[in-house]
Design a protein around this nucleic acid. Structure first.
Lengths: 199, 199
DNA sequence: CTCTTCTCCAACGTTTGCGTTGGGAAGAAC
DNA sequence: GTTCTTCCCAACGCAAACGTTGGAGAAGAG
């Protein structure tokens, strides 16, 4: 049998991803991951330097994939609404991303993987919003970066604390409720981005 | 020395709270908690039935405290804005609440402590919003429960994924930024709650 | 005072995870 | 074919967490 270094790494990363998503860094063990990957534990230490490093790799990979997959917002309130809707779709189809970010928030104390790269990615999106503001299509009531956070908030909260969402809305089947939630999010994003002041 | 059952329980709960907040259920151990409380491990098993039960107790207590402390929203868009601001203040002063809810979201699979009680609490808040809608003071573009979730989203996101917020806004000192963030949240909440449609 | 009940701890055996080591087998260099 | 390197695993020692047990001492009942 031929060596398959890349294949082995891939298997480890995949197994690690599903373990981390399900149980978090502290909820699983290197042994379990190795077993799930059908590989010896030692390989994990050799390739990724332990659980810590492995988690960093997994997260970096997921973030990169996601940022490549979700298109950037554009220059009118309606487009921002659509962007929020698409982002919601993506997060619904790929719940692992937010879960990993959550684990990162809870466990990594200040230290963040790939910070520079990710910061640039967010800056790019923010710049897009700022452009819309400069052209007068969007409100200037918020700084573009703050508007960005607000959008992430209305889109992400449903998934971040699903138990809260469930208790508030009383829905036991999130999938069945997807369309309705999406419409809510699109409208909310539009309102936040639109010109003119409220109340 | 006299027995002090309640005192012992209290010490355990306090120690457990800070441990759970800092490291989560899987990140700490019964031994550490007992040591921090200055009590023997066995007491934890005897009183709370292990780590699981202990976490449930801690969370229930924190939720009860919080829901009692934060006043409910009222009947105009401006008031909703103020409510959001006050909620943000509270969450900033008591970051443990969201962290515990986050641990609950990530670890508890479906099972939620004190669900009935908490559901009633949210329903009460939602009813308040619905009342505002019925009186014509607030928008009817959203169902009251959805509006509730949206508000929680724009208020909570900053704290839920602080590393993301930091990368987006570029602020390294959340405390220094509190006032600005608060203003953003108040305005956003007003916009979401106000009558009239966007763009 | 005596007996029972309750609180609390020290200590134990078991299990589990960590990170490492030594060696065997597959390819590469020559 | 020989040597050298790389990939991989079985197995180990160590440390830590688990959940439990036996017993010492304080409170309360009669």
């Amino acid at each position: 049998m031929a060596w398959d270094t890349e294949g082995t790494k891939r298997k480890i990363l995949d197994a690690a991803a599903s373990e981390f998503i399900a149980h978090g860094p502290d909820g699983t063990t290197v042994e379990k991951i190795a077993r799930a990957a059908g590989v010896n534990k030692e390989r994990v230490y050799n390739y990724f330097g332990g659980k810590q490093g492995l988690f960093a790799h997994v997260l970096a990979e997921q973030v990169t994939t996601a940022s490549a997959a979700v298109p950037i917002p554009a220059g009118s309130a309606d487009e921002v609404g659509e962007y929020a809707g698409r982002l919601f779709d993506y997060l619904t189809e790929h719940p692992q991303l937010l879960r990993l970010l959550q684990w990162e928030a809870l466990t990594a104390s200040g230290q963040v993987t790939d910070e520079a790269e990710r910061t640039r990615m967010y800056a790019h999106r923010t710049a897009e919003l700022a452009h819309g503001q400069a052209s007068g299509a969007l409100t200037s009531a918020f700084e573009a970066s703050d508007l960005n956070v607000l959008l992430l908030g209305i889109v992400g909260y449903w998934t971040l604390l699903p138990q809260v969402t469930r208790m508030v809305t009383g829905t036991s089947q999130p999938e069945a409720d997807h369309a309705r939630r999406r419409a809510v999010i699109v409208e909310a994003a539009r309102r936040l981005a639109a010109r003119g002041r409220a109340s």
